[in-house]
Amino acid sequence: MQRVRYYEYGGPEVLTVEDADPPAPQAGQVLLRAEAIGVNFVDTKFRRGSDSGSIFQRPLPGRPTGDVVGTVTQVGPDVDRRLVGRRVAALAEDAYADYVVAEASWLATVPDHLDSGDASMLAMSAPVALRILRAARLNPGDTVLIHAAAGGIGHLAVQLAKVLGAGTVIGTARSSRKLDFVRNVGADVAIDYALPDWPDQVRAAAPGGVDVVLDAVGGSVLQSSLDLLAPFGRTVVYGAATGELERVPVVKLFALRSVTGFNLTAWRHANPDQARQEMGELADLFAAGQLRTTVHASLPLTEAATAHELIEARSHTGRILLIPTTPPAA
């Protein structure tokens, strides 16, 4: 089979396509024959090593993670053999490969006829989008500000905010094309957060302040967002694309504001039953057409470097997929 790893930190060019034997599933694991792999922004940060900041440190060799859609071909000891032949989605390490090992306990069953783009969201992106809204205690009619709303998680969060009853949804992005995309997926207002007056534009759209902020950008964007919260407003921080982990000034919280952090792994450990229930809930929303994924590009697995270039150029909207091209083993 083919797989992609990196043996030094650096730009997309360090991603190396190599031949390898398929991995063997261990206890609690399954082996997937991949049909598509969703590429995530965070792996471009891990690939660059220390240049990305202290929170993006991974040892070498680098094994990119990804949202794998595929068919179970083999199960490890103590795993239900009835999973063999089932089409599933999973967040996995060493994911840029024809065959991928995944944890059996966190497989998302893919509804019939769901395409690879939608299916790739079931294991990680959609669960994060739903849970950050619920962590923010979204109420019907709330005004929601979603940063990076054109991204893989962001464009689902816009749609889910509407599904959950939000009033006004404000999405931020960069470039006019991305702003059009944000409006097309359901945002009432789209604002370019690269402009220095973006906070004033938010205030114009929400004179009383925003009730909920969803932020994975960090840095000055997070700092300005805290000032935009209405009394009892809630911010959920679930990433730091800038690599800047600012201290949250407590004085800003005295105005009846709150900040919560979110991490999918921590959520799964804290409440695994509800986490699994929400994966099923999201699968139903996709199957019913209430959620949809935009696939910006589907590239051969061997063009993983191109996928990372697109992500780092911030030129994509929605999802980028890698497609394995090696024929299945006989």
Rank of each mutant, 00 (worst) to 15 (best):
T65C: 03
P12S: 10
R82K: 15
D98A: 13
E13T: 01
P59C: 06
V72H: 10
S125R: 13
F56C: 00
R134I: 02
T73V: 15
E18H: 08
A24R: 15
F56R: 00
D43W: 04
D112A: 15
R81L: 04
A104M: 09
V88W: 11
L145R: 10
E103N: 15
Y96W: 12
F41G: 04
V128W: 10
G117E: 02
P61Q: 09
Q57T: 14
Y96M: 11
G49Q: 04
T73E: 15
E103Q: 15
V17Y: 07
S125Y: 02
T65H: 04
P127L: 15
V75N: 12
L138F: 04
D115T: 01
N139I: 02
R48D: 00
P22L: 13
P64E: 01
E18G: 05
P23K: 12
D21N: 11
V14I: 08
P111C: 13
E13F: 01
N40K: 05
W106E: 14
Q57G: 06
M121D: 03
M121R: 14
G28K: 05
Q74F: 04
V79K: 10
P23T: 11
G49M: 03
A34N: 05
D21C: 10
T16G: 05
D19C: 01
A95K: 03
L32Q: 05
A36S: 06
V84H: 10
E18T: 09
Y9G: 00
R87V: 07
V101S: 07
L15S: 08
F41Y: 15
V17T: 14
A123E: 00
L130F: 14
T65F: 05
S116F: 02
L91H: 08
P23E: 03
P59R: 04
P59A: 10
A27G: 04
T143K: 12
L114D: 06
D78V: 06
S105W: 12
Q57C: 03
D43N: 14
F56M: 00
R137N: 09
T44Y: 05
G10A: 04
Q74N: 07
P61I: 02
V30M: 11
P77A: 15
H147W: 13
G49C: 03
D78G: 05
W106V: 11
G141V: 07
Q29N: 06
P59E: 11
V68L: 03
T16F: 07
K45G: 00
R137F: 05
A108K: 10
D115E: 01
Q29F: 06
A136F: 07
Q74H: 14
V79A: 13
P64D: 02
V75G: 13
V84F: 08
Q29M: 11
P23A: 04
L31Y: 07
V69N: 03
S120M: 06
V39S: 06
G117S: 01
R131G: 01
D67M: 12
V101T: 14
A95N: 08
V30H: 12
A108S: 15
D19S: 11
G38F: 09
R33L: 11
V69D: 01
L114K: 08
P64I: 04
A123L: 05
A20G: 09
F56Y: 13
